[in-house]
Design a protein around this nucleic acid. Structure first.
Length: 267
DNA sequence: AATGGGACCTGCGCGC
DNA sequence: TGCGCGCAGGTCCCAT
């Protein structure tokens, strides 16, 4: 799943490989990904437009156009972007660029979204989004948890609470901090919150360093894989030995989401 | 305020 | 090898 490190990787690559190019043509293989605007209107608005900047907020990819409008891309679960000379697997919407390359919005499950907006700040998803974990201090981080009775792991994944953390990095962060994923957030003491902050920053930064986690259907812009999957401690490792204590990791479902953890190391 | 469940979707892994 | 079933999961929406 594309989370903060994956989207950060993609946006950096868009900035070096796509920014400065002009959209020549839009090809709809599956227009269902396009939301809140008719295909012909979208085409009229974006064809001939130069892409001037790529940005990220949470898991949202933002492409600024010369006109001042923004193309909004949300990859959700199974989406990825591919910049290549040809179509990719599960290409749904394709932007043909001035250098002849195709910017493919690929998505296996068709749950991703493509939009065009006047100002990305006005997007509901952005207006209700929590702070960026890499942009807040330890003190600000700790303050978020005051009075929160929610289980810690689903709370970390709540985009209204904190932006960009999903199922992979939430599991990795609580494992790193030695905290049980179902621990009530407000029962964490100061020391645990500080440890959790350090761990969250750590797993996100390591993810970015590795170009993301290609565990399911995430790929970098050129189609290659991010290498962070080999550094995951718990995600999708149920039954395998804990890297700390060697006892087998177990899998539970928390708020409807699969969660792998070590019952011995995480209290 | 917080939690739970359904809907959106389809590829893929599993069991037979 | 082939078929059918049901899970996976980010986000939104509704109900409790």
């Amino acid at each position: 799943m594309p989370e903060l490190p994956e989207v950060t990787t993609i946006v950096a690559e868009l900035n070096s490989a796509v920014v400065g190019k002009t959209i020549k043509e839009v090809i709809f293989k599956d227009a269902r990904l396009l939301k809140a605007i008719k295909p012909q209107i979208f085409v009229k608005e974006v064809v001939g437009q130069k892409i001037v900047q790529a940005l990220r907020r949470g898991k949202v990819i933002i492409l600024k156009l010369q006109s001042g409008k923004f193309i909004i891309i949300h990859l959700r679960i199974s989406g990825w972007l591919l910049l290549a000379g040809e179509e990719g697997k599960h290409s749904r919407i394709i932007l043909k660029l001035s250098d002849g390359k195709l910017l493919n919005f690929c998505d296996g499950r068709v749950l991703g979204e493509l939009r065009l907006v006047d100002d990305w700040h006005d997007l509901n998803v952005v207006k209700t989004m929590g702070p960026e974990p890499l942009e807040i201090s330890k003190q600000e981080f700790a303050k978020l948890f005051e009075g929160k009775k929610t289980k810690i792991k689903p709370l970390l994944m709540d985009q209204h609470f904190l932006a960009g953390v999903g199922n992979i990095y939430a599991q990795e962060a609580v494992f790193c901090a030695g905290i049980h994923p179902e621990k009530e957030a407000n029962k964490l003491d100061k020391k645990q919150l500080e440890k959790l902050y350090d761990c969250l920053i750590h797993v996100l930064e390591e993810g970015i360093k590795d170009g993301g986690t290609s565990a399911d259907s995430y790929f970098r812009l050129d189609g290659s894989k991010g290498t962070h999957v080999e550094h995951l401690m718990v995600y999708q490792r149920d039954g395998k030995p804990c890297v700390k204590c060697k006892k087998p990791l177990i899998r539970i479902t928390t708020s409807g989401r699969g969660t792998v953890f070590c019952p011995h190391c995480q209290k």
